[in-house]
Design a protein around this nucleic acid. Structure first.
Length: 892
RNA sequence: GGGCGCGUAGCUCAGUUGGUUAGAGCGCCUGCUUCACACGCAGGAGGUCACAGGUUCGAGUCCUGUCGCGCCCACCA
């Protein structure tokens, strides 16, 4: 017997009194894996999904847990439908993010990556990766993720790196990757270029400075407005609009750049908007994307005035070496001193910040590698347009299209050390570039051996863009690739729709000639009780490990799913988790109760073989619960298929608690008897309970496995795990409308009686006589269920056809029946007394309220809400006293 | 500047193509240690479905507008 076999609970033992998920969840998590429960069968309908690989930057947060729970529900459901189901797990090296984390670690030791050198630093990051990747795997296992760990992948695995290299070379050969000096977003802290997506726009308060540029050969000047005066040092023109008659005569002339004392031309360009500011704009081709374009249109020189550290370059003369913000100050002082500063306005401006380190990015011209996107976007647009890929919720299609239609080239090179090294070699002799699948030994162009590999690495999303096929063995034609690509479904967050989803579609179409997935379900964000996004900096994160330890994994999963309505965010609170734990506890105790009764009845743990159809025998409660079971199964299958997880969770919850436990088990209590053995009652109960566990299994895998194993212990033909059992499918044969109607009547009779008793404040222990009048089916139901009515409603019921002779006080009327309680003299007296006392007290309160509300001083001085509140209360007292008087009158 | 979404019970949210009396969980009130469960049982209060129009036999659900809130995209100094 293996260690994990031993870790299983002891057979059929009746569950302990308290539900303590911590005692069995970790054991089952490990047992599933050790026993190959998630192994994929050789044949059958295929269902595949690749995980959105978490970054190896640390551990998993609630967003991951939500995502993994949704994935796991879908995966377990498909597995239980008998499909060959693959959930491929893995992690992303997350270039810039991980490098930053490790650099921070180094900083604590007073070191930089440069102190270590590239190789040693990479080793260091690998160490970190091993640790973080291990933590992530451990967490996923603990959360019950039913993935196939034998297929676990990492974006820097040799196989995946080969795929990256293959794609890079292919795209390069097709002219879809090029290298050149263009305007990029540069992070002066991370020291790397960034793609547009990696720049967050944030609005800040700033200024708009109006600067006078003297016109050469005149005593006039042109006033330009800028938010970044320090860049003027690199101006190589000023622009006016060709349609702007105010300045048109100046076209072709020059202005003298203040401070720098350089003559620069006045050009006509649409860059200048006559409506904005003065209608004249300075042109700094080296430091602004628009100016860069304008500069190319007019062949303007680019003067680099800010370097990679965001310090001023030698080009700026006396400002050289200054930080960009210090330079701004000093440039402004110089302008002021020279009388060039016309005015300063308050201005709201948006600046780009590095997504990772929040440093303000510097737009500058830099030689980088770019991927041409338009040709890749076209097939990606078509794939969605013609329905080969479907977004759920559908409106994400629009967002996707919007981005695809306006796509711009993608800067794929990063000046980092952690990532896939760009497979390009530069020749020291001829300057030629050799891009190759195999490491070259000589320059392709001139044959020189003096070549060195490009020092840049690729954007981390380049490799994750290949994830759906690189993980399956591509570029080799592996059996997995043939079997599982295209994948069936992707479940991910909208925050990486462009970063990842869009790129997977483009690269999948390009490399595989087919879509990477057929459906994309976009889930919401996990928020805290104040609807705030969870973030480490805000300190409002709920740690999955902490709450799963506290409430149990099943309860947290249930809570997440209950909130997971498509298109909405998930508000996660501890109250909800506590409620979900109560639900788990309820099931636990139902199982405990059943097993205790099985013992006294002499019933061995047992689960039926084959699907659930109709009940044995013709007891109403059996026919009813089977019917409700099939309807629930039908709805749940549909809900999960349509990603309506909240609905699936609610259906399971409502059925198990409010139908199975509240009514069915209560009704069955009337039929338990010692030594009865495995009779029809038990076979029906156990079939339904076991079926309910299967319904619930995708949502609450641990609890259901734990209880199922206890029930299934002596059933030889069973699967090893409930995870391998079939998910319940509705059987029309089991639908019984007559039983449902009868049950409705029984519930109405019982509820009416309970309601009356509560209203008349009759002691729950008092058994009452009552008469039920009806012209229909209610009499039959009441006769057949008289034992249940006696127990649930405390009524000894007499049955009469027709209607009640008088409208007595203790009566409840429905369209189907009238129920009249016989209240005995002593009860009546007690009731009268209680009512009279209540009325007297109420009248006293009412008198006091009326006196106070009649006092003008009080009305005048007391705050309005107090007065209003008191008036409202008075109304309530009056209504209550009226009701009590009526009841009293009815009883008299 | 474009695009998307939200505003339903005290709180957090469901309510898929418009259809009989708008639901859940929590919270609140009342009563119950009923032999599985007080992480429980039973009963109850609480909603002009943001506002104003419109379409319809019928609107929380569709249309228009207003107000409030959030998110995404965008090269205007």
């Amino acid at each position: 017997m293996s260690q994990s076999e031993q870790a299983r609970p002891a057979g059929a033992a009746i569950p302990d009194k308290t539900y303590e998920p911590q005692r069995f969840e970790p054991a089952w998590a490990q047992w599933w894996i050790d026993n190959g429960i998630f192994d994929i069968p050789a044949g059958g309908e295929m269902f595949s999904l690749v995980i959105p690989p978490p970054n190896v930057t640390g551990s998993l947060h609630m967003g991951h847990m939500l995502e993994h729970t949704e994935i796991d529900v879908t995966i377990r459901w498909h597995r239980m439908l008998g499909h060959a189901t693959l959930w491929l797990p893995g992690t992303d090296h997350a270039g810039i993010a991980t490098q930053m984390v490790v650099e921070r670690e180094l900083a604590k030791e007073g070191q930089t990556r440069h102190d270590l050198g590239r190789d040693a630093f990479e080793q260091r990051v690998w160490q970190w990766k091993e640790q973080s990747g291990g933590t992530i795997k451990k967490q996923m296992v603990r959360l019950g993720a039913s993935c196939d760990w034998s297929r676990e992948r990492f974006t820097l695995d040799p196989g995946l790196s080969r795929a990256v290299r293959e794609v890079f070379v292919r795209l390069y050969e097709k002219g879809l990757i090029y290298r050149g000096a263009y305007m990029v977003n540069w992070c002066p802290r991370c020291h790397t270029a960034l793609s547009d997506l990696e720049v967050d726009r944030t609005e800040t308060d700033g200024h708009l400075w109006h600067i006078r540029y003297p016109i050469v050969g005149s005593d006039q000047f042109l006033t330009v407005a800028t938010t970044r005066p320090e860049t003027m040092l690199g101006d190589t023109a000023v622009a006016i609009n060709a349609a702007d008659e105010r300045y048109l005569h100046l076209h072709g002339g020059n202005v003298l750049l203040p401070v720098m004392n350089r003559e620069i031309p006045i050009i006509c360009d649409d860059l200048a908007d006559p409506e904005f500011g003065t209608g004249v704009v300075k042109v700094t081709p080296a430091h602004d994307p628009n100016d860069f374009e304008a500069g190319r249109r007019h062949n303007l020189p680019q003067i680099r005035v800010i370097d990679n550290d965001a310090k001023m370059t030698a080009e700026t003369g006396r400002f050289a070496g200054l930080d960009r913000y210090e330079a701004r100050k000093q440039v402004l002082e110089a302008l002021e001193a020279g009388g060039y500063l016309e005015k300063t306005e308050e201005y709201r401006l948006s600046a780009g910040a590095c997504q990772r380190c929040k440093t303000t990015v510097e737009p500058l011209v830099s030689t980088q590698w770019f991927a041409r996107m338009k040709p890749l976007a076209e097939p990606a647009i078509a794939a969605v347009a013609d329905g080969r890929i479907r977004f759920i919720p559908e409106n994400w299609t629009k967002t996707y299209n919007e981005w695809m239609y306006n796509i711009r080239d993608w800067c794929v090179s990063r000046q980092l050390w952690w990532g896939h090294r760009i497979p390009a070699w530069h020749c020291a002799d001829c300057g030629g570039v050799t891009v190759s699948r195999e490491d070259p030994s000589a320059c392709q162009a001139c044959g020189s051996a003096a070549i060195a590999q490009d020092t840049d690495v690729l954007d981390t999303w380049f490799s994750s863009g290949l994830w759906p096929f690189s993980t399956l063995g591509w570029p080799d034609q592996t059996p997995d690739l043939a079997r599982f690509y295209p994948t069936s479904l992707l479940i991910t967050g909208f925050d990486i729709l462009f970063f990842w989803v869009a790129r997977m579609v483009m690269l999948g179409m390009e490399c595989m000639g087919d879509v990477p997935f057929r459906q994309v379900y976009i889930h919401g964000l996990v928020r805290d009780a104040d609807k705030q996004k969870m973030s480490k900096t805000k300190g409002n994160v709920i740690d999955p490990l902490v709450v799963t330890e506290k409430y149990g994994t099943d309860a947290v999963r249930m809570t997440l799913l209950q909130g997971a309505a498509p298109g909405t965010d998930i508000v996660l609170t501890e109250e909800r988790m506590a409620a979900a734990r109560a639900f788990a506890n309820k099931i636990w105790n139902a199982a405990r109760f059943l097993m205790m009764n099985m013992e006294t009845s002499g019933v061995e743990p047992w689960i039926p073989e084959g699907p659930i159809g109709k009940p044995e025998g013709d007891a109403m409660e059996d026919r009813w619960i089977f019917s409700r079971f099939h309807r629930t199964a039908e709805s749940m299958n549909r809900a999960i298929a349509n990603f309506r997880y909240h609905e699936a969770a609610q259906l399971a919850w409502g059925f198990v608690w409010h139908e199975f436990c509240d009514w069915y088990v209560e009704l069955k209590k009337l039929r338990f008897s010692a030594g009865s053995g495995l009779n029809a009652d038990w076979r029906n109960i156990l079939a339904l309970f076991e079926g309910s566990l299967r319904l619930l299994h995708p949502v609450m895998p641990f609890l259901t496995e734990e209880l199922w194993q206890r029930l299934a212990v002596n059933s030889p033909g069973r699967p090893r795990s409930i995870a391998q059992a079939r998910f319940p499918q509705p059987d029309p044969q089991g639908i019984d409308e007559a039983a449902e109607k009868d049950m409705d009547l029984l519930q109405e009779i019982v509820t009416a009686a309970r309601n009356l008793r509560a209203e008349l404040k009759i002691d729950p222990k008092d058994q009452l006589s009552a008469t039920l009048y009806s012209e229909g089916r209610a009499l039959t139901v009441a006769r057949e269920q008289s034992a249940a009515i006696a127990r649930f409603a405390g009524l000894d019921l007499a049955l009469r056809p027709g209607h009640a002779p008088t409208m007595a006080g203790a009566m409840r009327a429905t369209p189907d029946f009238e129920l009249v309680l016989a209240v005995s003299d002593t009860q009546l007296a007690a009731l009268k007394q209680r009512l009279e006392k209540e009325i007297a007290q109420l009248e006293k309160t009412i008198t006091n309220s009326e006196r106070q509300l009649g006092d003008e001083k009080f009305i005048g001085r007391a705050p309005d809400h107090i007065v209003a509140g008191m008036r409202e209360k008075l109304g309530e007292y009056r209504a209550q006293v009226d009701k009590s008087r009526q009841v009293l009158a009815g009883l008299a």
